[in-house]
């Protein structure tokens, strides 16, 4: 089974990642509900992760993990640095989402609404 199938697909992955970032940015900027804004931020996070992993991809490479199957038949590896970065970024994105949702619950208990047009006072 040959591994040289990524001809124009890498451009397709880039376009997909940028499109997902733009869709999430639209949701985070335009929508009125606070939970929808957090969902938009989460979608942006997914798109950025996909873009960084796609940059580190090498055509015909394999995963940067040593195992007996690799040592028997060594071929070139993809770049491990973006994968390590994304691995950290996923966990940090989850933490950001959790803190934002905790703040959303606090705001709802104080104001009784989630519409950001009705939450005007800065002090709570």
């Amino acid at each position: 089974m040959n591994n040289t199938y990524f001809d124009l697909l890498d451009y397709m992955i880039y376009g997909t990642a940028i499109l997902i970032i733009l869709i999430g940015l639209y949701g985070a900027l335009v929508k009125k509900s606070l939970i929808k804004i957090v969902i938009g931020l989460s979608v942006v996070d997914s798109g950025v992760n996909l873009l960084i992993v796609a940059i580190g991809y090498l055509k015909g490479g394999t995963a940067p993990i040593f195992s007996p199957g690799y040592l028997a038949n060594p071929i070139k590896m993809v770049d491990p640095v973006p994968q390590a970065l994304v691995l950290t970024a996923i966990v940090i994105g989850f933490g950001v989402t959790a803190v934002a949702l905790a703040l959303v619950i606090r705001l709802y208990r104080h104001h009784g609404t989630l519409n950001i047009d009705e939450i005007k006072d800065l002090k709570w």
Binding site: Y57, A63, V78, Q83, I90, I105
Partner: peptide
């Protein structure tokens, strides 16, 4: 894209934990 460790983390966090905290938020609001 040959990144199984990233896929593993995304599967564990994105499917289980993110859904749970969003559902808890929706239930509370």
């Amino acid at each position: 894209l040959q990144a199984p460790d990233v896929a593993l983390t995304e599967a564990a966090i994105g499917v289980a934990l993110t859904t749970i905290i969003f559902i808890i938020t929706i239930r509370n609001t």
